[in-house]
Amino acid sequence: MTAERAGPRRAVEPLPGLWQGFAATLGRDCRLRFRRRSELANPLIFFALIVTLFPLGLAPDSTLLSGIAPGLLWVAALLSVLLSLDGLFRDDFDDGTLEQLLLAPQPASVLVLAKIVAHWLTTGLPLALISPLLAVMLSLPGHSMGVLMLTLLLGSATLSLVGAIGAALTVGLRRGGVLLSLLILPLYTPVLIFGAGTVRLAVDGAVIAPWLALMGAMLALSLLAAPWAAAAALKLSLDG
């Protein structure tokens, strides 16, 4: 136990880098998520369960199922993302690391973006990757599998970004979960409409490029606005 520690060194410290902060936060969040592996699998299991419930509730009729498969898979994916959103900031809020994140010299929106990217890598991306499996079970035509994955990749990133705003607004509330769905689901409708619509068009063999472009545009818009809005919401959640 020595009192030997580096004292104040310079009058003006050079500022730490933006990229360094982004990478450190992204790395830390990914590592945290992989350390809780069971939680990592939860959204995927939830996704598979919802998809299983629908044939049980409707009928084991493959023409019926393949007709509703695009919408069904999309709704199930959307709900799985929603389910995982509540934990996006809550753990960090509880143990005080969120406070420290906002106190970092880097702009909060960039660090929030790092957290959102980590969230997408561990929910949206795996959901998109396993979706063909469940699509086969719903007898979705084989030629539209690629489009399904592509729309889920693009769309789930938008869902993570928009959802982060809701998660940030409700992080300070004790029962934020239900409220979060109320806030976020209306905002999710355009993504659902375009995501499921694109897959349906692909099933019919129609041109999908304009629809994919619109999904890309929505992703670009939310990439621009959501981290900023989520950072502002986090600041006020910590205030209150």
């Binding site: 409220l179 959640s237 209150g240």
Partner: peptide, 24 residues
């Protein structure tokens, strides 16, 4: 409206509702 009501502090609820209105 639900978000505004969910905050214990009135100022907190006001700002949260304002952000959500703009996003909306």
């Amino acid at each position: 409206m639900a978000l505004r009501g969910a905050f214990a502090s009135r100022d907190g609820g006001a700002r949260a509702a304002a952000i959500l209105s703009l996003v909306g």
